[in-house]
């Protein structure tokens, strides 16, 4: 399940990385805390989560550190998206 969703959130991140000259990243490598991606890119990822995956960002306990690696981001999307 959710392979399509995961493929596209991965594609979103890879395209943001591509714009910054990065072509490869490990699934567990930090994206934001390492400085690979900046806050502008984080805004793009959040926008994608909200509009494409229906994640409710108005939850005051939303844990944004979920988006710091591809692995945790995909896991997060899978847990939030109806099968």
């Amino acid at each position: 399940m959710n392979t399509k969703s995961n493929a596209s959130i991965r594609a979103t991140v890879m395209s943001l990385l591509g714009e910054r000259g990065v072509t490869q990243v490990a699934d567990i490598e930090p994206l934001f805390s390492s400085g690979l991606l900046d806050s502008v890119a984080a805004t793009e990822v959040l926008l994608a989560l909200e509009t494409d995956f229906g994640v409710d960002l108005s939850d005051e306990d939303f844990d944004i550190t979920h988006i710091d690696t591809l692995a945790s981001l995909e896991h997060f999307v899978a847990s939030r998206t109806p099968a």
Partner: peptide, 8 residues
């Protein structure tokens, strides 16, 4: 706050 935590 990490720069990521700043976003939320």
């Amino acid at each position: 706050l990490s720069s990521l935590e700043m976003m939320a």
